[in-house]
Design a protein around this nucleic acid. Structure first.
Lengths: 196, 196
DNA sequence: CACCGTTCCGTAACAGTGTTCCGTAACGAT
DNA sequence: ATCGTTACGGAACACTGTTACGGAACGGTG
């Protein structure tokens, strides 16, 4: 056996941590293979061996983002009222996007021309989707909402994500109050529409 | 007076047409200053003089997209029922995004790290926004919807855009029927929620 | 017609990406 | 000590955005 490998799983983890940090600090434009390599104190080819290509780095960020989001949503304290729980779910989602704007771009926008998550997406967002569906199902079972839980969850999620993205882009009004009000108005109105 | 200028408004228009064609055919990744210049039969510096930088090209595409969308929405035949008109507006918006997926990415996603449309956006999307607000106002005046037309229009637009984007990304279901059904369910349910 | 000054043009270069080749060196076995 | 195997990273490649600058075109002038 020749020399011992350095381009291991440990480097992969260090590289992902570096990539997350670079993304948060320097944004999408600052995330280059070289900046990731430097921050991980690794050579450029080492990063390439561990991630394959730049799309591989973005893919890992994408997955990590959904892991973080899933964990945060799963950790929400239970609410007695299923509808109230759905509202809190929306608020938690919104907080996550506001707290991690760059990460949110990678997760819900397509800032890198390569990396088309069409296939991976299903697995990455599975947990988040399951949480939304479960919350909706609770409300349906409680007789508060009417319809197919999967349909409702999908539409609810789409509105919440759109509103949160709009808020991040300051399209929901300049002040905190107006975006606050509009976000809640949208969420509550859609839930009203699905109400029995 | 020395030689006659070639880098004129005419080249600007030819360049924009080239950029639109390149974007539609080769996608975001294929839109480079060189491909635009080649297609416009112009030199690279000529394109730069006319557009400033690459962000300038993207900006023009962005504006042109909203012009096209605005014209298409404005040309919709009038409907007697304001609610039905809103539904048709949503469908027309959806058709536009399905017909111009690459253009839609530039307009509603952020595929280029530079070009932050935060400021231009207001002017570019003004007409489209006005159409949505006007349709909502009609429904409010007719006593079919209840609330501030601007708020309702903003939320309605956000849902429609989100659903259309989800459909483009095949997140609304595999078959045409299921995405069709979910799109309409979402639109109708939100309108129900805003109904008087 | 020859010259000139102004203005414009596009070649060719620069810097910064993503990506990979290949010479070098480390390591265990002999 | 030597060797064969393997891993490592400097340095290069291709392609992008961007621009400096030498030279050409054009109207005016003698």
């Amino acid at each position: 056996m020749p020399r011992v490998k350095q381009r291991t799983e440990a480097l992969h983890e260090r590289g992902l941590a570096s990539a997350m940090a670079v993304l948060a600090e320097a944004g999408v434009a600052g995330l280059t293979t070289r900046t990731v390599a430097e921050r991980a104190r690794a050579s450029l080819p080492a990063i390439y061996e561990v991630f394959g290509d730049k799309a591989g780095i973005v893919r890992e960020i994408f997955f990590e983002g959904f892991r973080l989001l899933g964990a945060e949503l799963a950790a929400l304290p239970p609410a007695a009222d299923p509808l109230e729980a759905l509202r809190r779910l929306a608020e938690a989602f919104r907080r996550f996007l506001l707290a991690h704007p760059m990460l949110a771009e990678v997760m819900f926008s397509r800032p890198f021309a390569d990396f088309d998550p069409t296939k991976d997406e299903a697995r990455a967002g599975a947990k988040v989707r399951r949480i939304f569906v479960q919350h909706v199902r609770n409300a349906v079972d409680a007789g508060q909402l009417d319809g197919d839980p999967t349909d409702i969850a999908l539409i609810f999620f789409t509105l919440v994500e759109g509103l949160a993205a709009a808020e991040n882009a300051h399209r929901l009004g300049g002040s905190k109050q107006s975006s606050d009000r509009r976000f809640r108005l949208g969420v509550n109105t859609l839930l009203d529409g699905f109400a029995t």
